[in-house]
Nucleic acid binder design. Structure first.
Length: 413
RNA sequence: GUGAGCGUAGCUCAAUCUGGUAGAGCACUGGACUGUGGAUCCAGUCGUUGUGGGUUCAAUUCCCAUCGCUCACCCCA
């Protein structure tokens, strides 16, 4: 048997309504903040990702699906900020009037070991806003997300925020942090020894070295004046919007391009496993230039649709109306076909019974597919030009002239 | 990439410890009910026990390998 590849899942019809609800809500909410949809290719030159995300990150180092196509290295996108920035530069979107605000919905690919809430093909809904340098837009994005979550009925989450500084203050801070790590070196775990060189900010995630961490310097105490001002503006905007958030000086993003504001929404529901981060994002003021574009700042986030759906509250989905035409003998079958087509002309979803099945089996089938109403057409009905209509919930039956069936069911719907 | 757990019917699982020709519930199909679903009863279909090898008179059971799934670490949405 040929099976789906590891970490890639079918999304079956029964869960599609949830996906559609999430996507619809996102479009709806984001459009009211003047974001517009953009669709970019899944395949991009590998270099787009290595330059933006960072050569030394796990994503670029070992998680991309990459292959060569006529002497060019191509990769399936592991995220979509780089793709949107590329599209912006290539199409000179920054020269258009108005602000450049985009959202996208689509599959991403990372070759990681699958686990709960983590897949090799997963889906992200993301937003990117370009050209707005002030901290107000940072807060507005959080506000928009809060609205989006409210609309979906998700309230078991917390908002974590931080500032990563900029190209002038972050390197100074990292040196300071490394010095502190070196001083404590002897007592640090293996993982932390490795993090020291590769990604020192990650030490704060360590589960074993908590005691030492408490004395390490934190980034929020080491911001330059401009970054501090930006962060203060961000915090005060959130306050004006009455959005509760928690400052996590240890909050780091895994991609190199982030500067200043970073944030994450973490689910506090136990429906998710240990991968409980619903979305992550932040400001990337240098990224457009890194990709040979103009001087243009940006901020955005990406949220994981699979995780979001796991965090969705259970609500009963009402079954859609569905009709079934059961029939007896050839003449009944012929009339059933005609009736079904007439109903479909009016947009009604209707199935016709299998002519090889006895009336009893047709009813069973109607019940199984969840038909709310069954029409019966047999010799008796044919003779009188009527249709027997049975309500499957109450079991009541009535006889209606063939020409009045549509009027009858719309009246009762 | 590392670690742990698990692979038996379409699904959920038993039998594995203590080796002896694989079983239940659900689902499915048909009948009781010849023009009416859901409830009940009866009958029927369903397996290369993930795969390959080893030990044994005999392996679903013990051993080795391999593949797959799941969860966790790393890291991330």
């Amino acid at each position: 048997m040929i099976k789906a590849v590891r970490g890639m899942k079918d999304i079956l019809p029964e869960e599609i309504p949830l996906w559609q609800k999430v996507e619809e809500t996102a479009r709806d909410v984001f459009e009211t903040y003047l974001y517009h949809e953009i669709r970019t290719p899944i395949l991009e030159p590998t270099e787009l990702f290595s330059r933006s995300i960072g050569e030394a990150t796990d994503i670029v180092e070992k998680e991309m699906y990459t292959f060569e196509d006529s002497h060019q290295q191509l990769s399936m996108r592991p995220e979509n900020t780089a793709g949107v920035v590329r599209a912006l530069i290539e199409n000179r979107l920054q020269d258009l009037r108005g602000s450049q605000r985009y959202y996208y919905i689509g599959p991403m690919f990372r070759r990681e070991r699958p686990q709960k809430g983590r897949f090799r093909q997963f889906h992200q809904i993301g937003v990117e806003a370009f050209g707005d340098a002030g901290p107000y837009v940072d807060a507005e994005i959080i506000q928009m997300l809060a609205r989006f979550f409210r609309r979906l009925g998700i309230d078991a989450y917390e908002v974590r925020i931080n500032s990563l500084g900029c190209r002038s203050c972050r390197p100074l801070y990292i040196e300071k942090l490394r010095a502190a790590m070196d001083a404590a070196s002897a007592t640090l775990c293996e993982d932390c020894q490795r993090r020291r060189d590769k990604n020192p900010l990650r030490v704060f995630d360590c589960k074993t070295d908590q005691e030492q961490l408490a004395s390490f310097p934190v980034i929020t105490d080491n911001l330059c004046a401009a970054c501090q001002e930006h962060f203060d503006g961000f915090l005060s905007s959130l306050k004006k919007m009455a959005i509760p958030s928690i400052v996590y000086p240890s909050l780091v993003r895994g991609l190199d391009y982030y500067t200043r504001t970073t944030f994450e929404f973490v689910s506090t529901s136990d429906a998710l496993g240990s991968q409980n981060s619903l979305l992550g994002g932040g400001r990337y003021d240098g990224l457009v230039q890194v990709l040979d574009g103009p001087v243009l700042c940006g901020i955005g986030f990406a949220l994981g649709v699979e995780r979001l759906i796991m965090a969705l509250p259970d609500v009963l989905q009402e079954a859609p109306l569905c009709y079934y035409v059961a029939h007896i003998e050839n003449e009944g079958f012929a009339r059933a076909l005609t009736l079904a087509e007439r109903l479909r002309d009016h947009g009604v979803a209707v199935a016709v019974g299998n002519p090889l099945k006895a009336i009893k089996a047709q009813f069973k089938e109607a019940d199984k597919m969840g038909a709310t109403t069954v029409f019966v057409i047999g010799p008796d009905e044919a003779k009188q030009g009527v249709v027997t209509i049975k309500d499957m919930k109450t079991g009541e039956q009535r006889s209606v002239p063939e020409s009045e069936v549509m009027a009858d069911i719309t009246e009762r719907a």
